[in-house]
Amino acid sequence: MFNHKRRFALRENRKENSVFENKSPRQAALKVARRLEPRENEADAVINPERIRLRERGSSKDRTLIPS
């Protein structure tokens, strides 16, 4: 199998400031989620989930993910 990692750029306010290198968009989103500020309580996180927008570098594919 190939161990090819892909690059995903985190999109915030139409800017791409951070790049994460992983095998899948889900892995990149989980890496981003670990760096987010924690919520006050779990109920708030369930009601208002944080949206993570990633774009694969070298592609026009834009993905919006909500980590679970």
Rank of each mutant, 00 (worst) to 15 (best):
E12L: 07
E12A: 07
E12Q: 12
N13L: 11
N13Q: 09
N13K: 09
N13H: 04
N13Y: 02
R14E: 12
K15R: 09
K15H: 14
K15P: 05
K15Y: 12
E16Y: 13
N17S: 12
N17D: 15
N17V: 06
S18L: 13
V19R: 06
F20M: 01
F20W: 04
F20A: 00
E21A: 07
E21D: 06
N22Q: 09
N22Y: 11
K23L: 06
K23R: 04
K23G: 08
S24M: 04
S24P: 02
P25S: 01
R26E: 15
R26C: 10
R26S: 11
Q27A: 09
A29L: 00
L30F: 14
L30M: 09
L30C: 08
K31P: 01
K31C: 03
K31T: 13
V32K: 00
A33F: 07
A33D: 10
R34M: 10
R34E: 07
R34A: 09
R35W: 04
R35A: 03
R35E: 01
L36V: 09
L36G: 02
L36R: 03
L36N: 02
L36M: 06
E37D: 08
P38T: 00
P38A: 01
P38Y: 00
R39M: 01
R39L: 05
R39G: 03
R39K: 09
R39C: 05
E40T: 12
N41P: 01
N41W: 03
E42H: 02
A43S: 09
D44A: 10
D44L: 06
D44I: 04
A45K: 06
V46S: 10
V46I: 14
V46T: 11
V46H: 06
V46G: 05
V46F: 08
V46W: 08
I47G: 11
I47N: 14
I47K: 12
N48C: 03
N48M: 06
N48V: 10
E50H: 09
R51L: 11
I52L: 03
I52D: 01
I52H: 00
I52N: 00
R53T: 15
R55N: 15
R55M: 14
R55F: 15
E56M: 03
E56Y: 09
E56W: 03
E56N: 01
E56Q: 05
R57I: 15
R57H: 14
R57A: 15
R57T: 15
G58N: 08
G58I: 07
